[in-house]
Write a protein that binds this DNA or RNA. Sequence first.
DNA 1: TGCCCTGGCACCATTACCTCA
DNA 2: AGTGAGGTAATGGTGCCAGGG
Length: 327
Amino acid sequence: MELGLRLGEAPEKGGRGLGLMLGMRLVVGRGGKGEDEERRVEEEEEETEEGRGLAEAPLQLSLLPLLPVPPQQPSSPQLRLPWTTETKKLDASMRGFDMNHAPSAVAADEGASSSSSPKSIPSSFQMDFSAPRGGDEPGAGGEATAAEIGSLRVSDDEENGLGRKKLRLTKEQSAFLEESFKEHNTLNPKQKLALAKQLNLRPRQVEVWFQNRRARTKLKQTEVDCEYLRRCCQTLTEENRRLQKEVAELRALKTSRPFYMHVPATTLSMCPACERVASTTAIPTAAATPSADYRPNSFAALFSKPVALRSGSRTAPTAPRLPSPAS
DNA sequence: TGCCCTGGCACCATTACCTCA
DNA sequence: AGTGAGGTAATGGTGCCAGGG
């Protein structure tokens, strides 16, 4: 039985940062109900890899199907991802749901963001929240009117640096950003600007949204990975327990049957070089193993070794790195 | 060609605001 | 009405990289 668990870096768009990659390899050299299922899982995973030479390919978890996927169509048909060829001018009504700032602010911010560090951008967006907001969700009835947008200004608190106000993106904005994120989880400056313009947000806000979105994705992925590892550990613990029990039974059998040569052909043997247990070895008969030092004690030596859960990083060759999709 | 500086960007940890039960 | 938890926008720090002097 051989197990490889590998936690490593996954290639990531742009080649920056760390992605979490989980690799698992479970090979049990004997028949068994539970392990058959495990092996089936492994084989199914390999089939999906479409012939990339995957004897050692790790099973990579993909979070995407597990993440809540918003409806495919943006809530506003006028919205198009800025980098698609069919980008259309934002409908005037689309601008209505914005609650952040006047379009002029966007233009001003574009200039600022292209010429200076994001850190130099004044903190947060600037609008007047001094009046109590009527609706919780601007997109759900609380949309900022043109008058409200026009009233946007730097609040006194903001100017004095006393606390920060926080906007909630409208459903439309969030949905559109989500769509964009599905296309690209990072943005180049052009995309960022286009998106900001289209959503009537500041480029910095778009940037922050993507940043937070990536963080959420990573967090979810980590949770999924942890859960998967936990289950793997659980399964393997049970399997190990079962095998230990079987070993004990075989030991008992051995003591009761001294003629070891009568052991069936499925006898386990160990490769002296790599110390791996294999079940495919020929029947250990005197003819097959004429060596004088072949002794029944070899089995005892074998069985004295606990069934090891090998670390994949030590024994299993590293799976080929996938080419970066960004390249 | 190597070094330094700067701008831009991404990631991370954290804060602070907002909503909801 | 008050409150705690959870979600998330926003901030500040840091490191990496590319381009220019």
